[in-house]
Design a protein around this nucleic acid. Structure first.
Lengths: 153, 153
DNA sequence: TCATATGCATAGTTTTGCTATATACTTCTG
DNA sequence: CAGAAGTATATAGCAAAACTATGCATATGA
């Protein structure tokens, strides 16, 4: 059965599969970086510069956790802290070209490791994966926006 | 662009999105259980009874970690340890009806929380998600089998 | 200007998972 | 059949990652 008619089952399956896929990725590369590092860099790459608090919400970690993460990313030179001229308490965190390169390298390594498993996909399957990725990305962004509600107005 | 022509980009995107979706799920429910609990129960539900070591590989954790997990699941009554009559060192771990119910309850809670975000999907999008889930599941099982290579023959 | 709110940093703890190793049983060899 | 080697799980101890609570500096508004 390709299409469960219960949205609810589909969501449950997607989450479980995501868990397992995440673990597969985590154990597939030699990278010693935590998943949070790549998640954070990915968010920065997709969104552009964000305040530390916004970044924490988008990456779904607490603010203190993001403070630590940003610290370690900064030491590596993978991000840049730009002082917010409009608010001396705040920083804008932006991904450095070095970080972008590190992210790209990780994605390449991951793809090389996993590609064999996905090499035999036909066009329709590839298309389904790409469409699914788009849908999920869109819903995640929406969730981020809602989590940050109040910032904008 | 709906279909990146680089498989490699698609894989990178899927992994990043999985990370974020996993975090979204983790912070969306009131469940105090670790993701590993649900991942393990899901694997048991899909595969049926497995040896502890096989379960560790399928759930992508080390064997000692799975020993602890199984211990805590056992205390809760969510799984059963069945002595393997053919090998006194080994156990077959099977999901208990209670565990199945707990898993179902978590999936329901998750679906109720997340369904609003996915409520406006059209048929084609739903189909793409379902097909993507099938493809990913298949590749994960294949990865599991390879990790356990040697068991069968 | 003082009170309150907000953004980030720090401290300390809990959770989760790991590596290394021990124990018990099985299997193979002579 | 004894003993060596291998395999399945358990235990010990440690490292990483994320949390809550709280502190400090700046902003905002009466």
């Amino acid at each position: 059965m390709t299409a469960p008619n219960q949205l609810s089952d589909l969501i449950g399956d997607l989450i479980s599969l995501s868990h397992r896929l995440t673990r597969l990725a985590a154990t597939s590369t030699d990278s010693t970086e935590s998943p949070a590092v790549w998640r954070t860099l990915s968010v920065l790459r997709d969104h552009g510069p964000l305040r530390l608090g916004e970044l924490a919400r988008a990456s779904r970690v607490s603010q203190p956790t993001m403070t630590k993460l940003v610290h370690s990313l900064d030491e590596r030179g993978w991000i840049r802290r730009i002082a917010d001229r409009e608010d001396a308490r705040a920083w804008l965190i932006s991904i450095d070209p070095t970080g972008l390169a590190a992210l790209a390298a990780w994605r390449t390594e991951l793809a090389e490791t996993l590609a064999p498993r996905f090499a035999d996909l036909d066009g329709a399957e590839l298309d389904a994966l790409a469409r699914a990725a788009d849908v999920i990305r869109e819903r995640l962004e929406r969730a981020d926006d809602e989590a940050a509600a109040g910032d904008v107005a």
